[in-house]
């Protein structure tokens, strides 16, 4: 009845993926484990035989500039992201989203890779990252590949990672002048207290005109949602009350909100998303001055 039978401590990415491929099944990776441990303890996860601990792999802890990109290792815990001057400079929406997750104890353990790999449609860190046009690096026993972040998501709680693949890290484009991002969310305080909606916005300014923008919202569908139509609508327009109002309309028409019992109705989420869009977009816009 123990939660696992074998616990492995690989030192390299290659060791880890090979362990996942060859250890007694089911074998799954564990990073911070803040969600996985609870799922195992509460019987919400199919029993596992082998846990492959990724926290001892140096490569996954890298947090550095690589060429034109900021690399954030999948094993970097939320607290390091929040405290990192590099991330603050280049990925504000990620700092803001990671800072809201749990208390310091959880943020010290929970990793960005774990947040993304869990593939929940409203994971704060994931939404914060999604607006930044991040790419994910994935390792398998035979190769490494880079893919746009959104291609990692297959459905609620389901990623496109194979059983013997792990996330190595994320590449975020370095922030250029007049670019900025922001993240906002609304919690439900009462009853089953959970975030009921979050939204991240990235924007590039050309004086008073929106040169480019990306909006990510969760939960607004089975996977973390990129509001592409809203982005298109905003692009090239002057920033104004009317522009935001128009974008709110577009966002309402493209995002699909659901009613979650004891959390929020779809209608309530529609009310909130226009507030969050305005707040996050305006915050990013101000920062991009």
């Amino acid at each position: 009845m123990s939660l696992w039978k074998e616990y492995l401590h690989p030192k390299t990415v290659q060791e880890a993926v090979e362990a996942l491929a060859s250890s007694p099944a089911p074998a799954i990776p564990i990073a911070g484990g803040t969600d996985l441990m609870l799922d195992l303890q509460q019987g919400n996860h199919t029993p596992v035989h082998t846990l492959v601990d990724l926290t001892g792999i140096l490569e996954l802890h890298a947090l550095e500039i690589r060429g034109e990109k900021l690399f954030i290792g999948a094993g970097v815990p939320h607290n390091r992201i929040v405290e990192s001057a590099l991330v603050r400079e280049h990925a504000t929406s990620l700092v803001e989203s990671c800072g809201l997750i749990g208390g310091p104890q959880v943020r010290n353990s929970a990793t960005l890779g774990g947040n993304v790999a869990h593939a929940l449609p409203a994971a704060d860190g994931t939404i914060g990252l999604l607006a930044l046009d991040a790419e994910a690096e994935v390792a398998s026993p035979s190769s490494r590949r880079l893919l746009p972040l959104h291609e990692l998501f297959a459905g609620p709680g389901k990623s496109t990672l194979a059983a013997d693949e792990i996330l190595v890290g994320f590449y975020v484009p370095l922030r250029k002048p007049r670019q900025a991002s922001a993240f906002c969310r609304v919690m439900r305080a009462q009853g089953i207290a959970l975030p009921i909606l979050n939204l991240a916005a990235w924007v590039e300014r050309d004086d008073e005109v929106i040169r480019a923008t990306r909006i990510a919202v969760g939960p607004a569908g089975p996977t973390p949602f990129r509001a592409l139509e809203t982005g298109k609508f905003l692009t090239g327009k002057a920033f104004s009350e009317e522009t935001i109002a128009g974008a709110q309309e577009v966002l309402l028409s493209e995002a699909k909100f659901r009613t979650s019992p004891a959390r929020a109705t779809a209608e309530y989420r529609r009310e909130l998303v226009v507030v969050l869009l305005k707040n996050a977009f305006s915050a990013a816009w101000e920062r991009a001055k």
């Binding site: 616990y7 564990i30 441990m37 959880v106």
Partner: peptide, 24 residues
């Protein structure tokens, strides 16, 4: 279940929840 914080200990200088940290 990583909610209350009563099990907090300091591991290598950082506070963690010992109830959801594998001993390994």
């Amino acid at each position: 279940e990583a909610e209350c914080g009563a099990c907090t200990v300091i591991m290598d200088g950082e506070p963690v929840l010992s109830c959801s940290t594998p001993a390994e």
